[in-house]
Design a protein around this nucleic acid. Structure first.
Lengths: 369, 369
DNA sequence: CTGAAAGCGCTTACAG
DNA sequence: CTGAAAGCGCTTACAG
């Protein structure tokens, strides 16, 4: 690692100008314009400077620093010393031009402020860093337009994308995937690799739980129309509820945020359902908060279930019952697959992540207080 | 904007190959190796392709696309049409090599999972995007080593950094600032521009509030030693408490997370103080949760105050009293200053952000239940 | 093992 | 207004 394009003073110490290696003083590169103006940053040294100091050709420097072993050991040693003396560090932009590779990967999140992505992010981070890539994160602010603009700007700079809960239309995703490797998370699209949770197990247990509590009807508080997971969750809920003889009432979609959940409280209560499953925890939390503010008892008058098991779900009162997905593992898997794609290695499809229902205080029998 | 390096089909449609402009068919660039293998991505077109099609020199293409008006209007029009026909888009990496500028800015967060950064991030995002820059976000995972590694990797790629609550040593920050423009947030360092909240007003009101509730002693649950804000908050608390004749007891530092707050519950309770101010909301929330689990009433037996007013602080029960900083504005300001520095414009220092105390349910008179 | 040379795709003085 | 040329800092066949 210290020998590739990340080369430089290993401990980050500045420009050690210690003893000169034998062979005369380093010739300073001629720069037009005489002495630099005060305050100007000193120009970084290049492989030409290192080559001159080590008494070899620039190509030898490139080889020595990038393919250790492919060059005479003594020469390599001399080159490394020269590089260290000059505080040389590879210019990755200059390297990217001929190679077409930057070793940077982008993780684009539909909403960077949704805590559901914390584990995902750490998972992608861990794996990609371990594989020698730098990860940058970008935010789509829950907007397809912003997301498209973002990936377009980034496409020239990064080797590939992990798109989490992309709000892009299928055609856009395909277009991007035609330009750079793409791995999806929380979205399935034929022909594009993806990591998706299987809502089934978690939803089934949630429905069983609500059913055994005596609820014969469940509301579904929908999320954004552009959300794949919204469709999956709605369908899965309908499926398992029907199988158990429980009715499902869909409640119009809203912003997938705490505010969106708050704003939906009136509609949810208006439906008169004894239980509601929200598109995600953010909405569920907003709904619970709004109920509390209106003096509506949760779970006495309304049981609430969310999705994701995000930060804060277990800290509220009542704590939120929710369907959790192991997105930490999912992120690692997505990172691994993306790197494989970038490096041109084939990778078999992966099994969907298993979800599970976590029962907490926000669900209970009807009619308590 | 559509004329600079972001040039390309405005609506993102793929490679329109409509009617050929007058002047003969576009000569296809000769590529060695004959026809491309199936599945290979088609090579992107360059200014040479556009120049050939428009019948001008590559430099004319560069000028037409980058400095509208500096070239004959009809020629420019012809060039734009050729570019559109070929679906040309500028290669920003190739442009960055001679210019040394990428128009990318990095926001490095001490911990990307701390909701305190949500507003900050959106603020930086809004301003830098408006100024024509792409923002990438990186995570330091609360580790100086990870942070240093991250900024080193990114330094060659970005035009400048916003460092939020950097855990780097002063010397490291100065070293980085010598290489690229840096703006700090939640950290002050002579010679490096920064945006910091003035803890004073918020802490004073918090102390007044606790004092008027009858508390004669306040614990301070410390955060990371590497945190500048930890020092500021501790000092400010000591100052205002002393002024009001209230004792302050420092309680050893821990991880600035919910878990860290939970883990500190024993120590806090052991001190026997009737009130505690935590380094941040994350710790305060963990502390409150741990108290609830132990059956210790908040605020009856312990009043708890946090810092930051993060997501979830108002959703818990009891809702968290806290000292809020307007980091959304701070982020905008930081973004503006960074762009100014990158573009070589001087920028006057900015006034510290005003904090304010938000009283909620986690603070109250001693000895209720 | 090593070097000379061409090339990656732009920008930008310098001439005309 | 426009073009020819040099240069940004690397990599990589191609020869020796």
């Amino acid at each position: 690692l210290s020998t590739d394009c990340q080369t430089g003073p290993g401990d980050g110490s500045v420009e050690a100008v210690g003893e000169q290696p034998a062979g005369g003083p380093p010739r300073e590169r001629e720069r037009a314009g005489g002495p630099r103006p005060p305050g100007a940053r000193r120009p970084a040294s290049t492989i030409y400077d290192v080559a001159a100091l080590a008494g070899v050709s620039p190509s030898a420097v490139s080889r020595a620093l990038n393919k250790p072993g492919r060059i005479n050991a003594r020469t390599e040693q001399r080159i490394r010393e020269a590089a260290a003396t000059l505080g040389y560090r590879c210019n990755p932009i200059a390297r990217a031009l001929p190679t077409g590779r930057t070793s940077i990967l982008a993780l684009v999140l539909s909403d960077i402020t949704n805590p559901v992505y914390f584990d995902l992010l750490r998972g992608v981070e861990r794996v990609t860093a371990g594989l020698g890539y730098t990860l940058v994160v970008a935010d789509a602010r829950e907007s397809a337009a912003v997301e498209w603009d973002t990936v377009q700007r980034l496409a020239a700079w990064v080797d590939g994308f992990v798109l989490a809960a992309s709000r892009l239309r299928d055609a856009r995703i395909r277009e991007l995937a035609g330009r750079r490797p793409v791995v999806l998370v929380n979205r399935a699209l034929t022909g594009v690799p993806g990591v998706v949770p299987d809502a089934g197990p978690g939803v089934r247990d949630a429905v069983d739980h609500l059913g055994s509590l005596g609820h014969r009807a469940i509301g579904y508080l929908a999320g954004p129309a552009a959300s794949y997971m919204n469709r999956i969750r709605r369908r899965s809920l309908a499926e398992h509820a029907t199988a158990r003889g429980v009715a499902v009432v869909e409640i119009g979609s809203g912003q997938p945020t705490v505010e969106g959940g708050r704003a939906a409280a009136g509609r949810v209560l208006g439906e008169g359902v004894p239980a509601v499953v929200a598109y995600n925890d953010l909405m569920a939390m907003g709904l619970v908060a709004a109920c509390r503010e209106r003096g509506v008892d949760v779970p006495g008058r309304l049981s609430v279930v969310g999705f994701d098991d995000i930060f804060g779900a277990d800290l509220m009162t009542p704590a939120l019952s929710t369907v959790a997905s192991p997105l930490g593992d999912g992120g690692g898997e997505a990172g691994r697959r993306l790197v494989a794609a970038v490096e041109g290695r084939p990778e078999p499809a992966v099994a969907p992540l298993a979800t599970r229902f976590v029962a907490r205080g926000s669900t209970g029998p009807a009619g308590s207080p």
